[in-house]
Amino acid sequence: MDLFGSTVRMLEGSLDYSAVKNQTISNNIANIDTPGYKSKDVVFRNVLNDELNSASKMKRTHPKHMPFDNGSASRSFQTITKMNSNYNHNGNNVDIDKEMAELAKNQIYYQGLVDRLNGKFHTIQTVIRGGK
């Protein structure tokens, strides 16, 4: 039985993405003066193709069979290293302006996810209390 539905799982995955992105940006900023450091970024994998491939391999043949999880536990994003640019004379390619803009954008994204999750739990709480 899925108590909260797929919305909470989707929000959980999005919060995981945002947390990893925040940590990656923080590492980039912390290494701005490290010689030879290459900035990293968090990107989505090809989620649609993965889902289509997994859906074509796993099918329920009877309604009483247990449903497949289709990889909700696996992350749909990965961290990559940007190797193709140099901004500093020491081989470092961290652009502080870009990193700060990405950090602000990610914080807004994270706050939106938290607000949506709070709304979802508030709705459940209202139902439990009988609409009060």
Rank of each mutant, 00 (worst) to 15 (best):
S6H: 13
T7W: 06
R9Y: 02
M10N: 08
G13M: 09
G13K: 14
L15P: 10
Y17H: 13
V20I: 14
K21L: 10
N22E: 14
N22L: 14
I25K: 01
N27G: 09
N31H: 08
N31A: 12
I32V: 15
T34F: 06
T34R: 05
G36T: 05
G36W: 02
V42L: 08
V42R: 03
V43E: 07
F44D: 11
F44W: 01
R45P: 00
L48R: 14
L48I: 13
N49Y: 05
D50P: 01
R60M: 14
R60E: 02
H62Q: 05
K64T: 08
H65N: 12
H65I: 02
S72V: 15
S74M: 11
S76C: 08
F77M: 08
I80Y: 01
K82C: 07
N84W: 12
S85Y: 13
N86F: 10
Y87I: 09
N88G: 02
H89K: 15
H89M: 10
H89E: 05
G91A: 01
N92K: 09
D97R: 06
D97P: 01
E99M: 08
M100H: 04
A101Y: 06
A101N: 12
E102K: 09
L103N: 12
A104T: 12
I108N: 12
Y109T: 00
K120S: 15
K120V: 15
F121W: 08
F121Y: 13
H122T: 13
H122W: 08
T123N: 11
T123A: 11
I124W: 07
Q125I: 07
I128Y: 00
G131F: 04
